[in-house]
Design a protein around this nucleic acid. Structure first.
Lengths: 192, 192
DNA sequence: CGGCTATACTCACTCGGTGAGTATAGATGA
DNA sequence: TCATCTATACTCACCGAGTGAGTATAGCCG
């Protein structure tokens, strides 16, 4: 199960970009295209924002740039992960995602995407981790719910709504894990 | 029903702050306390961020500050809405919130809070608007789902998950609207 | 030959958000 | 009695998120 409850990290498309570079070096324009095509329903990132993130990752030492002049097309910077960058991505892929609705829809699905491409055998563990993490979050919120001061109806409503959303996402995950396990026996990855 | 589908605004605690000032003028420290106590489960805003927002609202002409020196306590800036500020808040309160999960949990609940305090008779209309908006969003996403290119499993999963979340929130809203309507007949606002 | 799209990237800006710092008064407690 | 903790009230410097417009060139299409 490997359920180590790690501190929550901020969710951002930066790991998706690291992941695409992990799969294959490329330049900014290209990465933006890959990100939009493959994970466009998850991350809505503008071109300039992609460049912003890449520049930051570079200044933090996770990737190196090499200027390449082309004959007919504008010059470009091909980007490549440094060892620190590879390590960062691998650590992210191995760690369970946070327990929020947002984290599941964004980070978790992104992890699923890269796990599929890199090492599908890890998927059951990733699913199990995520399910465990969600149970944990739900339990925490239930405790908080019980401790809410009387009055403050809106705070109660908010927590109630969040719990409901989390339970619904948990159901979905459990269904998905089941179909996935079933299709493993019959040899194919699951459909949609 | 008054269903005019207005462009989505960014969701931010700024309207909650405008709202508290609408109810009663106050200074930054006080507003931060009110916000945390009343809507703390919705907006997690640090003290300095509260001041940031207030400063911006001031520079945009939505509120005015007046320095007040106190005998024993530090000087403070009492803040008051300008007519533009009052108008901005009223427009926000009247407009339907966006159709995303996040928008409902944050903006919509905030609107509900202020509607309760200012004019509970508007609540049924607000609920109806929100429900209509959600139906609209769900229909839009279903169309998009149908048009997704083959392959790109993760994009399909993401949309599927989002739809599921929206349907769950819609159910909740409909339940809430119903209990609310029923308790209106028996004279009390609904509980939790 | 005039405009459109694709390639590849830059710049300037606003907004969101944090953490630490400043200054003072009164309460708490060993 | 002296230290330290909590409450009041705010400021500052910084980083990251995100946008919109701009730059420059090549090739295609009618």
């Amino acid at each position: 199960m490997t359920t180590s409850f790690v501190p929550r990290r901020p969710s951002s498309p930066e790991f998706a970009l690291l992941g695409f570079l992990y799969l294959q070096p490329g330049h900014g324009y290209d990465l933006h295209r890959r990100l939009s095509a493959e994970l466009g329903e998850i991350w809505h990132v503008s071109q300039s924002q992609t460049y912003n993130i890449l520049k930051r990752l570079q200044s933090q030492g996770y990737l190196t740039a090499r200027r390449v002049t082309q004959e007919k097309l504008p010059a470009m910077q091909t980007l490549e992960l440094t060892p620190a960058g590879r390590a960062r991505f691998e650590a992210w892929l191995a760690a369970p995602t946070g327990g929020s609705v947002r984290a599941v829809r964004l980070d978790f699905l992104t992890r699923l995407y890269f796990a599929r491409r890199l090492d599908p055998s890890r998927i059951p563990a990733i699913l199990a981790d995520q399910i465990a993490y969600l149970h944990h979050t739900i339990a925490r919120l239930e405790t908080r719910w019980a401790g809410l001061p009387a009055g403050g109806e809106i705070n109660r409503l908010s927590l109630q709504l969040r719990l409901r959303q989390l339970r619904s996402i948990l159901e979905w995950l459990e269904e998905y894990a089941e179909t996935f396990a079933r299709t493993l026996q019959t040899e194919d990855p699951p459909r949609s």
